Amino acid sequence: MQPEFVNSSPHHPVVVAHQAQRRADVQLRIADAITAFAGSMPFVYIHAVLFTVWMVFIEPDPWPKLTLIVSLEAIFLSTFVMVGQNRQAAFQQAKADHDFTEQEQELKTNTQLTREIHVLTTELHRRLVEDAGR
């Protein structure tokens, strides 16, 4: 017997839909790119080199400007982190809703199958009892 639905994607349907939505929105693609870069080691290395060069070679008293720049950068990066957390929460909710719907459908199907098996078993028992009585 062939299954009714064969998922050709290795990912959950909610994941596929979520990825398609993200690809379609330019702002989300930009936010994803910034978040991916900001969470990488190249980001750390670049900052370490730039701040070192700036403090040693460019600015004789780097602390006031450095404090300002690092504070502003932290504000923007923390905002990107919160945006990412909100997107992740929305994705998790969509997946949970999808899973709940699928589980409810599975429960209904299993309940219906159990009822049909009960009816068939009762009928089979009735026929066996009648045949034994003859």
Rank of each mutant, 00 (worst) to 15 (best):
V119G: 00
N110Q: 05
R127W: 07
Q21M: 09
V83E: 08
I117P: 00
T35D: 08
D25P: 01
I75M: 08
M41T: 11
V14R: 06
E130H: 06
W63I: 12
S71G: 14
L107C: 03
S9M: 09
I75H: 02
L72E: 13
A89E: 10
E106D: 10
Q93E: 14
A38P: 00
V26C: 04
E130S: 09
P62L: 08
V70W: 01
M55S: 15
W54D: 14
A89I: 04
V15P: 00
M82V: 14
H125P: 00
F5S: 08
R87D: 12
F37T: 07
Q19T: 06
N110D: 02
A48F: 13
V56P: 05
S78G: 07
V129I: 08
S71V: 02
L68H: 11
W54A: 07
T109E: 10
A31C: 08
A33K: 11
F76M: 11
V53H: 12
H125E: 13
V44W: 10
V49S: 13
R22S: 10
L128V: 02
L120A: 13
I34S: 05
S40Y: 03
L28I: 00
R23M: 10
L113D: 02
A17M: 05
V56F: 06
A89V: 06
V83C: 03
A94R: 11
E130Y: 00
A31N: 10
F57C: 15
I75P: 00
V119Y: 01
F76K: 01
R23A: 13
H98L: 01
V14Y: 03
Q85R: 05
T52A: 12
A33I: 08
A38F: 06
W54Q: 13
E73D: 03
E104N: 14
R87S: 10
F51W: 15
F51I: 09
P3V: 03
E4R: 10
Q93N: 09
H18R: 10
V129Y: 04
Q27N: 11
E123K: 08
A89W: 01
F91M: 15
L66S: 13
V14M: 05
H98V: 00
L124H: 07
I58Q: 11
D99G: 03
Y45G: 11
V14A: 15
V53G: 03
H118S: 05
V15W: 05
K108F: 04
V83R: 05
T122A: 12
D32T: 08
E106Q: 14
L128Y: 03
L107S: 07
L128R: 04
L124K: 06
G39C: 05
R87E: 12
Q105Y: 09
S8F: 02
A48C: 12
A20G: 10
K108H: 07
R127L: 15
I117T: 02
H118R: 05
Q92P: 00
E106R: 10
H11T: 04
E59N: 14
R29M: 15
A33P: 03
A74D: 09
V44C: 08
D99C: 01
Q105A: 15
D61T: 07
V44Y: 07
V14E: 15
M55Y: 07
L68A: 12
Q103M: 10
Q105E: 15
H118A: 06
F5Q: 12
